[in-house]
Computed example of a mutant assay.
Amino acid sequence: MSWLDKKIRRVAVLMSTYNGEKYIDDQIRSIAGQVVSQDVQVRLYVHDDGSTDHTLNMLKALKLEFQELITIITEPSKNVGVKASFFSLIKSPSITADYYFLSDQDDIWEKHKISDFLELFSEMSKDKPCGVYSDLWIADKNANSTGEKMSQIAHWKKGIIDFKFLSFDYRVVGCAFAINNAARLEFKNSVSLDLINSVNMHDSFLALLISATGELHLLDKPTVYYRQHEGNVIGALKKRETITQKINKAIAVPGQLIHDDVCIGDLVEKNHIKTNDGVESIISIYRKYYDANGFTERLRAAVRVYPLMHHRRRWLHFILMIFIHTNEYTTQPWIGTNR
């Protein structure tokens, strides 16, 4: 069978930009230079989120150069923030594909990234929500690798990353994450803008949803040069924080994680979505804490949550969860709601 007889596999790369003039050219050229087989069609869809620098002009110039590769999306026309911007791309009725790759504006992709992801997707079901995420090279502001991988500095543990694990961990990094069309449709049909604005991030919530209802797999190799610079929204390296910021983060992180887990429970119940084995019982544990009134109920609920924690500072979060209802502090002070 020749490649002409094969069904074209359509890949949509979704990118949100905001004042990215320093890095956008490098990233788009790394996407344009992807090495893929002839039956793979790659298209890049960019939503500019109200840039005030030369990002939009650079995008228009790159579109002239790469023509059909790039589609610039201008709605929403005002600055809505990174979560709502990606949300609009994932929900857009004008974008249709078999696979959807999330992309930051300031990284550089390994030239075989798309091919490596598609090879792993080919072993997975097309009929249920599936996602693939990879490791990343930590890079400096010039996109030179530091020699360290995300899995090293974040102390990734090997093994299955299921809902139980992700329910108390932000493992998946959006710029190294892709989903199939079944996952996109599930997200598109069940997630509202109000919901996405209330969760930690669009990518971590999407990964959590897939782990609850489908399959999530790790490509155990770096496929992205994850550029670290002063403009990172989140980034891989620790930023200098005040004592107040550290305290706010320590309180808000467990509350936000539990909030997102409960949101998954509400979402699957409302939309009658079947979950994987054990998911509902895990959500019920978090819901007990979420709905707790008073110290005694919080204590009992936190004791049940503790075995689900697996990071090095779980004892600190456990103590805070007992004495403070951490769900009241899910305002994300460690990342903000905008760029």
Rank of each mutant, 00 (worst) to 15 (best):
L59V: 12
E148A: 07
L14T: 10
E123I: 09
Q27M: 12
K164I: 01
S37K: 09
D116L: 13
G214R: 02
Y329R: 03
R314Q: 13
F205H: 05
S88M: 12
M124E: 12
H229I: 14
R171G: 09
P333G: 05
A32I: 03
P307Y: 01
E230M: 06
P254L: 00
I95F: 06
G214F: 11
L118W: 01
S115K: 07
P333C: 04
S198W: 05
T330S: 12
E241Y: 07
E148Y: 13
D277I: 06
K274H: 12
I282R: 05
S167I: 02
L136N: 09
S145E: 07
I251H: 01
M321H: 03
E75S: 14
V305F: 00
I153W: 08
S103N: 05
S16T: 14
D169T: 03
E328H: 11
I8P: 00
T326K: 00
D140S: 07
S281R: 12
K91V: 15
L120W: 00
S2C: 11
E21G: 07
S198Q: 13
H202R: 00
D26H: 08
A301I: 07
V82W: 01
N200C: 11
T74A: 08
L219W: 05
N197P: 00
D25C: 15
G265W: 02
L62G: 05
K221M: 14
Y286P: 01
D127M: 12
W334D: 15
F205M: 09
T330C: 12
I160L: 15
E65N: 11
